[in-house]
Design a protein around this nucleic acid. Structure first.
Lengths: 353, 353
DNA sequence: CTGAAAGCGCTTACAG
DNA sequence: CTGAAAGCGCTTACAG
């Protein structure tokens, strides 16, 4: 019928070469030679032949044969190589904990991809070789290529809108709104947003939510007061703080789109006698393990990776089990680490929603 | 012979229920119903039955059947749930890039485990269901349990010594030595190490290397000058700097075991007119994306996760292909991010070895 | 101690 | 448009 597909030797060839049966080879290579009492001599011949023929066991065949009670789901997580930072760790943890909670076996494969090259792994997405896929860090280009394809498995985008696929994202607008809610206080008169020139859609939404939230609280904001930087650097942070402070009236509340600007901003304030949080309240986007250990401890908002992972898993399970045919879209509230820099410290010491 | 193993419905049952052949069911569920022109009606019946019987495809059977030219290696990475930070991302990236370099297909599974519960996944390690395993963050307890077992697949420990398994680690001793080499300069008179009470073996080695390196350069060090903290906090960093400065003569060079102490240490220096790097040169252990944006930019040493991943992959490939029977042990030099806080800035702006 | 044979759950050429 | 049958590469009872 069909011809042999895989390159490389298999158990059969080893058996032929050594002149023993396949079972013997299998037992030896499976490490059970001694237990089944295959002669030392035969064992050695088998190992030698395996090495010589460059044998590589087919893990899938083994797994199929040794079938477990419960067939696991195989979830592939596609993550951009240039973005493999701590968020991927939290995401993985989220998937793991959610799978425990749901009491289902999920095998997590992680597939890094370079921006622009997602479709090099296209065969994995369209070949029914996984139960579902989560794709993070998609560029417009990659998304377009992806949407041109046809898939039977559920595909879940993280942090990107799509009409064709499921998507799980952070509600950036509400996160901006909520930030000012955390910082608002009777005395606060003005507010400003510090972001970037080439800002993402999510960042623009966060800014919009922040501005609207300010206005609804009668905290004065102006497009003009906001600062847009070319990139993160100490100098840009320092300069941004100076620029904002030259225009606004204190006390003020700031939302900063990147915590790497913290050093420059905080130093400018300190150098100029601006007290945080008394004169300026600040929340930074993107939590870093180090913000907490600043003086004052710095507040942050971040993508709730663990929760988003849980949702992604749920969508996969749902899609695998009941053939939902319309894409699901879920927005999550961000993760707040509210510390002193934003004004009030919640009672539990460190507020995480 | 043997009885059916897996729970849940299979293609066969769906076929029986609907009254069609297995091929038809397979084609429909594989998303090729239209292409093969299965009637819409049959397709619907198949889907309905699949849902009703709670069908879950066996991915391994699919993969075996659709065998590719090259059988991939399946590498499982065991990582502690409480340690899923940015290092796991770098490690994954390292494995990916190394597998590209070696031109071999490697499927990376990531298996989080809770400290003390590694052996809950023991069956995965001993069942020949993967090509090899990398285990990071092993506790003594888990290691002991692990070493009691018997395995045919290569197991590679990250950052732990073992006589039974392969191991890949950072050369902490040399990293301490090298840190003082970076900070040494004619004027530097003293040096100190800031670490923790419950320090790890690796930390003790780093301290030892640092001390020896100092002495060999005639930079004065004393056990008494070193400070050992209970945990990381702003206050502990601040206090540690005060304590060290009360004993030593300037200029001095410090190696600090945790970059989260940076805030407190740098603030104490600033508050007391101690200039970094003129009076005190500092290197912190553990790189954080934010250190670079401090003023002065802070130097760090860190575990070279990507390189270690590459080595781990090489060991797995070697072990899979030639049955090395003695454990391999490889030590790596750390990753240095040398910035202004340690004195000299290398010519390329940011020195990474 | 070793071999012949069944079968894990799927997909795919092929015949009709 | 659908079915019968082969076979992916392994492991495992069972017979000898």
């Amino acid at each position: 019928m069909e011809t042999k597909k895989t390159a490389g030797a298999q158990i059969k060839e080893i058996a032929e070469k050594v002149g023993v049966s396949q079972s013997t080879v299998s037992v030896v290579l499976g490490g059970r030679g001694d237990r089944i009492r295959i002669s030392k001599e035969t064992q050695k011949k088998v190992w030698d032949a395996a090495r010589e023929l460059n044998y590589r066991p087919n893990i899938y065949a083994r797994r199929l044969r040794q079938a477990e009670e419960e067939v696991p789901y195989v979830l592939a997580i596609f993550w951009r190589t240039d973005n493999l930072n701590s968020r991927v760790g939290r995401f993985i943890r989220g998937v793991y904990e959610a799978s425990e909670k749901r009491e289902c076996r999920v095998e997590v494969m992680i597939q890094p991809y370079r921006p622009g090259e997602l479709m090099r792994h296209g065969e994995m997405l369209s070949g029914n070789r996984i139960s579902g896929a989560v794709i993070s860090g998609l560029s417009s280009e990659d998304q377009e290529a992806l949407e041109a394809g046809d898939y039977t498995i559920p595909i879940i985008l993280i942090g990107r809108e799509s009409t064709k696929f499921h998507c799980v994202m952070m509600d950036s607008y509400r996160s901006g709104e909520q930030c000012i809610a955390y910082m608002a206080a009777p005395g606060i008169k003005t507010a400003a947003f510090i972001g970037f020139d080439n800002n993402s859609r999510a960042e623009r939404k966060m800014e919009a939510g922040f501005m609207v939230g300010c206005r609804s609280r009668n905290i004065r904001v102006k497009e003009d007061w906001n600062v847009y930087l070319g990139c993160s650097s100490y100098e840009n942070g320092y300069g941004a703080a100076r620029e904002v402070l030259s225009k606004i009236e204190l006390p003020s509340a700031w939302l900063v789109a990147d915590s790497r600007l913290a050093g420059g901003i905080m130093d400018y304030c300190q150098d100029n006698g601006i007290r945080v949080p008394e004169d300026v309240r600040i929340i930074f986007f993107e939590e870093s393990g180090i913000l907490k250990y600043n003086r004052p401890p710095l507040s942050s908002v971040d993508v709730p990776s663990m929760e988003m992972a849980e949702t992604a898993l749920d969508i996969m399970l749902l899609a695998c089990n009941s053939q939902i045919d319309i894409p699901i879209r879920r927005e999550h509230l961000p993760l707040y680490c509210i510390r002193e820099s934003s004004g009030g410290l919640p009672q539990d010491g460190e507020g995480k929603r």
